[in-house]
């Protein structure tokens, strides 16, 4: 193969972006490597810090039959990588009014009946850049266990790679989101202190303080901000 030609600069790696060969510095993320090669992101890039889930990417490695999926901003390029960036993941998204959703065992199947098509192949789990047990939460959804679906999908960043890889065409990340919404609204124990604080705010307890702050000069505001008490930090005595 042509790529076996010796790479002269040892700090460079050879990658293939949509089939075209490029030499890029080793150690770059896939996202930066693609930019280094001259491409500009219109879609498929976001926070660049692994949180927003916008930069779903798929690739193969030299001599490896597996198709890998990950976040472009979190994955370092390797020599011989074949890359393509996914600008968008089309996936069926149910429309619902969370106020009207009945939080029972059939709630998820009602909006996403395709969950029942799951063949337990586990491909979704293998595709998840967050390392979630995606198949397990789809299986929990199938048996109406909303709590477990919500818990297992909690760290989902909605990149959509699970949905792109699923042979049953399930949109796992939307299913997880529905479960978390139902769980949060109807099932999760409510935090009492939060309710009390909201009541205080609504009753106007902090209105005067806010008014005071709004009238303050920038200099005084900065001073206050820098001197603020940070929860969990030890109070130092001077």
């Amino acid at each position: 193969m042509a790529r076996k030609k010796k790479i002269e600069n040892k700090k460079m790696v050879r990658i293939y972006i949509m089939g075209k060969e490029y030499l890029v510095p080793a150690g770059l993320t896939i996202m930066k490597a693609i930019e280094y090669a001259g491409y500009r992101y219109i879609r498929g890039a976001g926070c660049r810090a692994g949180f927003c889930g916008a930069c779903a990417t798929v690739y193969r490695k030299l001599g490896d039959y597996k198709l890998y999926a990950n976040l472009a901003c979190q994955t370092t390029v390797e020599d011989g990588m074949y890359l393509v960036q996914l600008p968008f993941v089309p996936a069926n998204k149910a429309t619902y009014d969370i106020e009207k959703v009945k939080p029972d065992e059939n709630a998820i199947l009602q909006y996403y009946p395709e969950v029942a098509r799951c063949v337990s192949c586990n491909t979704c789990t293998k595709a998840c850049p967050q390392g979630l047990e995606v198949m397990d939460y789809i299986q929990a959804a199938l048996r109406g266990d909303i709590k477990k679906t919500a818990e297992l999908s909690f760290d989902c960043i909605q990149c959509g790679l699970c949905a792109i890889r699923c042979p049953a065409e399930i949109a796992h990340y939307h299913v997880g989101q529905l479960a978390r919404r139902i769980y949060g609204k109807y099932m999760m124990p409510k935090a009492k202190h939060l309710q009390e604080r909201i009541k205080e705010i609504e009753a106007g307890k902090f209105d005067d303080e806010i008014k005071k702050l709004m009238k303050m000069g920038v200099k005084r505001l900065k001073e206050l901000y820098n001197k603020r008490e940070i929860e969990g930090e030890a109070v130092e005595s001077d």
């Binding site: 799951c118 337990s120 047990e133 198949m135 397990d136 299986q139 199938l142 048996r143």
Partner: peptide, 8 residues
């Protein structure tokens, strides 16, 4: 632990 649908 971690059982899944039998296939139905």
């Amino acid at each position: 632990p971690r059982w899944n649908c039998c296939g139905a």
